[in-house]
């Protein structure tokens, strides 16, 4: 059995969107190195509950790195120090006995805090609703093998499509920009023949919605790529920029913007 670790946590607590919030200090003395980070928080929450206190609210679901629901800034880095790893897949062996760990929620205007470490990411959903799809009805398509797609295009589209929508890119960006998230979706569909019909319309609508939601702009720090648990490349941001510029030069159209809720 591994030696138990002592860990001190500075956790952000906030009862609701209007509460200014503050840090709270907790100490755990028997952390096992094989615990996942979220299991460590489970243990803390069981302890808090036992003391009659309110457990720390945090988002999580699949706990296997694919649903994109979890996400905490750990010691200044979204999803913590390990590369290509979501918070739920981070394990305590990454830390050392006696460590002090600061835990904060994603901080962005477009991701308001719901409670403690839980934020509202519906802005991402609205960006996809604005145009992040191929308009196709069940029943309409022809045979799947009718249009061959070069393997390298399919692979590149898959690289972009891997995005789990966790929001770490926004959290990491000095401008709280959603460029990587939007660029990934624009590129995924723009790289495939099926996405061509709506390609330029799509990028215009998605970018307009992204701006409307109050995300910042991209200033090419590439912190997003470093924080991305799926290591999505900033090349997709360049691709979005290119598509957007040609879309706006090619044809002018009214892009109705909606108010963020």
């Amino acid at each position: 059995m591994s030696k138990p670790m002592r860990i001190t946590l500075n956790v952000w607590r906030q009862t609701g969107p209007k509460d200014p919030g503050q840090f709270e200090r907790h100490e755990l003395t028997d952390v096992d190195e094989h615990m996942s980070f979220l299991e460590m928080l489970d243990v803390l929450n069981e302890k808090l509950l036992g003391e009659g206190k309110d457990p720390i609210a945090f988002d999580h679901d699949c706990r296997e790195g694919i649903c994109g629901m979890c996400g905490i800034v750990i010691n200044g880095r979204p999803h913590g120090p390990r590369e290509a790893t979501t918070t739920c897949q981070l394990h305590m062996r990454t830390f050392s006995d006696g460590d002090e760990i600061t835990i904060e929620p994603w901080r962005a205007n477009a991701f308001p805090v719901v409670k403690d470490l839980v934020v509202d990411r519906t802005s991402f959903d609205r960006v996809v609703q604005a145009g992040g799809y191929v308009s196709v009805r069940a029943g309409s398509p022809g045979d799947a093998n009718e249009i061959p797609i070069p393997k390298k295009d399919a692979d590149a589209a898959m690289d972009a499509a891997q995005c789990i929508g966790c929001g770490a890119c926004v959290a990491a960006c000095p401008n709280a920009s959603a460029a990587l998230f939007v660029g990934a979706k624009v590129s995924h569909l723009g790289l495939l023949p099926q996405g061509q019909a709506e390609r330029f319309d799509r990028v215009r609508k998605m970018v307009a919605q992204m701006d409307l939601e109050g995300f910042g702009h991209c200033t090419n720090h590439f912190e997003c790529m470093a924080a991305c648990p799926k290591e999505i490349s900033v090349d997709f941001i360049a691709r979005m920029n290119r598509d957007m510029l040609s879309a706006m030069v090619k044809e002018k159209d009214t892009v109705p913007g909606r108010k963020p809720r």
Partner: peptide, 18 residues
């Protein structure tokens, strides 16, 4: 058919087929 039309990037062979 439906998923491919939606842009699901299924694995492909070098010839471009699924």
């Amino acid at each position: 058919d439906q998923c491919v039309a939606q842009g699901v990037p299924f694995a492909r062979e070098y010839g471009g087929l699924l």
